[in-house]
Write a protein that binds this DNA or RNA. Structure first.
Length: 494
RNA sequence: GGGCCGCUAGCUCAAUUGGCAGAGCAAGAGACUCUUAAUCUCUAGGUUCCAGGUUCGAGUCCUGGGCGGCUCACCA
């Protein structure tokens, strides 16, 4: 069986149309597709990155050369303390994330603490993307020219901000935020530009004067200006935006005008995406501690399934992702489209939980169930079982979760059974033979119950009680046949 | 107030850039001597929020309206 390779997914229509518009306004390339959000680990990030990836692929499909960039705002000042971060970090307020130590000491900086896991997720997604850290861009002089340009056009930028937002701007406003000796980017006042030295003279909170060299990353442009400046500095031709940025008076509104009127750079193509929500959890919010990493979701599905799930039919629409009860159906549809063997995901879930880590046993169960193809591909089977098992443990509704009780638990659970049920279990235990097929086990279980005048529901209920501690479970015959015989016999002897 | 999105079967949603309105679940009927969130077969279920417009043809495009959700303030 030939499986579709990663990254070769069909380019969706909305992405192709977007690429077409980008090509009309920005030519045949080379194109620079940028996606950039703060490295806070919010799952919305993923949708933005995937939208950008789809458009980048659509541009490539048109024959253009594409540079695909993830831009991380590592130089940005810390402005709120995330849950779980020590209170002492209050003292780093206003400092660059790249200049603050990792609260857990595991990475080079506070910024990397959040960014590195996200980078790992991008790698796991097998994404062909280049990660740029903004503090490095500043330090390497990538922003030197646009910063000089911004400073020269301070009055013009200030006027645009005032017009678009309708707010009064401080008389001494500057597009540049120098870093004070204290490390803080905020609360400093630029008093003089030194274009010949790539610098500004500023006065900090305490009234001390200092000089910042903007060719060396000793400060940064204010957010709204930086956005437009980045387009020019990196030659951006496309960037997606969430709806929080694109409203009137929003950041794209100001950046668009700055780009055209100050930097004389054509506004990059754009796609406005809606957000995605996780059913039962509400909006993902890093400040509320509701954080879901791509990594977490790659535990239950392959990268291309994640792409499909997060992009939906049209990323301009909000979607509520159902990772609970609706997930098996999603997987079945995805697998059908991808041309994978048609084993129902729910079946894999049962098999995975029954067979534990034993791929051979699982293959046997699948084979007996008529799923030869899946059973004969151990590598793929192991991966699918991994997804199914993780889903069962982390997302599945309670009725689908299975765990064979240990001896003690089983004895406790059996306390509620009556004599008829115990006698039934004892008889069944005696009739079980090694190498019985699921079907004959099922037949034996049923026939025995009927012969004893025991209602099937009561009989099967007893079986599930001692094996799983529940009143119901997966189809009993195949399930029991898949378990080691001695364990079954032991649990039935109560 | 501005912006974006949604409104299609009882429920959750599809409808491939204008071409016979579909699926899953729920409901009803039947089948299986085999428990289940059962399975299989069949049935029913619709003024696509409203009013106009464009078109040979509109769930889809345009205008106006209604209801609901989200989002926006130099904070990146």
């Amino acid at each position: 069986m030939e499986h579709r390779m990663r990254g070769e997914m069909a380019v969706p229509g909305w992405a192709r149309r977007t690429a077409e518009r980008v090509a009309e306004t920005h030519g045949g390339g080379p194109h620079v597709v940028v996606t950039g959000i703060s490295p806070s680990g919010n799952i919305h990030n993923l949708r933005e990155v995937l939208v950008a990836e789809a458009v980048a692929n659509a541009l490539k499909e048109r024959g253009s050369e594409v540079r695909f960039v993830f831009h991380a705002d590592t130089i940005d000042p810390l402005r709120k303390i995330a849950p779980g971060i020590p209170k002492e970090y209050e003292r780093y307020m206003g400092h660059s994330l790249s200049h603050i130590p990792d609260p857990e000491g595991c990475h080079a900086s506070y910024a990397d603490h959040f960014l590195v896991p996200f980078e790992e997720s991008l790698r796991e997604m097998e994404m062909d993307i280049e990660v740029l850290r903004s503090h490095e861009l500043y330090e390497n002089g990538v922003y030197t020219e646009v910063t000089r340009e911004s400073l020269e056009n301070t009055a013009e930028l200030r006027r645009i901000l005032k017009e678009v937002s309708g707010r009064e701007m401080a008389e001494d406003w500057s597009p540049y935020q120098p870093r004070a000796a204290s490390g803080s980017l905020t609360g400093n006042r630029v008093v003089e530009n030194l274009p010949d030295e790539n610098g500004v003279v500023f006065v900090d909170r305490e009234g001390n004067e200092g000089v910042a060299d903007y060719s060396k990353g000793e400060g940064k442009l204010g957010w709204r200006v930086e956005l437009a400046a980045r387009w020019k500095a990196l030659g951006v031709t496309f960037e997606p935006f969430g709806k929080d940025h694109t409203s009137r008076g929003g950041s794209t509104d100001t950046a668009d005008r700055m780009s055209r009127e100050v930097f004389h750079y054509p506004v990059p193509g754009r796609y406005e995406y809606e957000w995605n929500y996780i059913k039962g959890q509400g909006a993902m919010s890093s400040s509320k501690g509701i954080v879901l990493l791509p990594k977490d979701l790659l535990r239950i599905m392959p990268p291309d399934a994640l792409r499909r799930m997060f992009l939906g039919r049209d990323p301009a629409r909000a979607i509520e992702l159902d990772l609970g009860g609706g997930f098996p159906r999603f997987m079945d549809e995805y697998r059908a489209e991808a041309g994978e063997p048609p084993v129902p995901f729910l079946h894999l879930v049962t098999v995975a939980q029954t067979a534990g880590g034993n791929t051979e046993a699982a293959a046997g169960m699948l084979s007996r169930g008529g799923y030869e193809e899946e059973a004969n591909d151990p590598e793929k089977l192991a991966l699918d079982l991994h997804y199914a098992r993780n889903w069962a443990e982390e997302w599945a509704p309670e009725p689908l979760r299975l765990r064979v009780l240990d001896e003690e638990e089983s004895t406790d659970a059996a306390a509620g059974l009556d004599d008829e049920q115990r006698a039934y279990l004892a008889e069944v235990a005696g009739k079980l033979e090694p190498d019985m097929e699921g079907e004959s086990v099922q037949d034996m279980l049923y026939t025995t119950a009927v012969e004893r005048g025991l209602k099937p529901k009561k009989a099967f209920g007893a079986l599930y009680t001692v094996l799983l501690g529940k009143k119901s479970g997966p189809k009993a015959g195949p399930f029991v046949a898949g378990l080691p015989e001695d364990i079954v016999r032991e649990r039935l002897s109560v």
